[in-house]
């Protein structure tokens, strides 16, 4: 029991609050240049992407779906967060080589800080999604708060994955290119621009094996159907978050031992 507590304590950097706070605020300040409007820049590119998908799928290909704008935004914004979290987090050891090879610092803290910075950015997407949804007459209520649950699921999956990849990148520098490719495939393998219901019945079981599929389709349900996502969606996405947390902890423990010599 104590061991579990200790592992979680280290994994979520509870002992390093001052470090995490300072590094996150450094990231936010430098990214957004101290202005709140600056935050818009980070959300602007996924929103542009969403707009493009909206035009292509709705206006040109005439996809038969109501509230397609709300649908596409509630998929693309979280996905953009997830993919940025993974790709930036992967670089947290190699990209900070100058720092980690000189100062003893818990390596998971760097990945954690990156994931947290991105999560804060993502939370700025909530008002956008709420406004778009509400303007299309989709009922919002207590169940809308489940958005936080799914965001945390995405955060945990991205953090665990980024941690493993950050070690991988030290050993294989071309992992970056591999991941760029994989993330593109992953994007189309996830119900982001299409809905879970569009997937043929016999393949639906496979899609649950995609760690972020349920979380994103849960977000779709909240912002386009305006109802509480099914228990299955909640459970499967929660299980994935748990799995990635355990994997992350396992890698953190094994560590990192001897990884810095390879930098």
């Amino acid at each position: 029991m104590k061991l579990i507590y200790q592992a979680l304590f280290d994994y979520f950097c509870f002992g390093k609050k001052f470090l995490v706070y300072n590094m996150v605020s450094r990231n936010i300040k430098s990214k957004y240049d101290r202005s709140f409007i600056g935050l818009g820049w980070t959300l602007l590119s996924p929103m542009m992407l969403a707009l493009i998908y909206y035009i292509v799928f709705k206006k040109i290909m005439h996809v038969q779906m109501e509230h397609y704008l709300a649908f596409i935004l509630s998929g693309v914004l979280p996905w953009a967060f997830f993919s940025q979290c993974v790709m930036e987090g992967m670089d947290s050891i190699v990209g900070n080589a100058g720092l980690v090879s000189k100062i003893p610092i818990p390596l998971q803290a760097l990945t954690f800080v990156n994931a947290l910075t991105n999560l804060i950015t993502l939370s700025a997407s909530i008002p956008i999604l709420v406004i778009i949804s509400a303007s299309q007459g989709i009922p919002l209520g207590w169940h809308t708060l489940l958005v936080f649950y799914f965001y945390i699921v995405l955060f945990l999956v991205a953090y665990g994955l980024a941690l493993v990849l950050s070690i991988g990148l030290v050993l294989f520098r071309d992992l970056r290119h591999v991941m760029t490719l994989l993330m593109q495939i992953w994007f189309f393998g996830t119900p982001v621009v299409y809905s879970f219901a569009m997937i043929p019945e016999q393949y639906r079981i496979v899609i649950h094996l995609n760690p972020v599929a349920d979380a994103i389709s849960g977000l779709h349900t909240i912002f386009t159907d305006g109802v509480t996502p099914g228990i299955k969606t909640l459970a499967v996405s929660g299980i994935w978050a748990l799995i990635f947390t355990l994997v992350g902890i396992a890698f953190m423990r094994k560590r990192f031992l001897g990884i810095l010599e390879k930098l």
Binding site: L19, N22, M23, R26, I103, P104
Partner: peptide
């Protein structure tokens, strides 16, 4: 601001 950042990184 960098004083705080640096001190945090050094583990304080």
């Amino acid at each position: 601001e960098n004083i705080f950042l640096n001190a945090a990184i050094l583990g304080f």
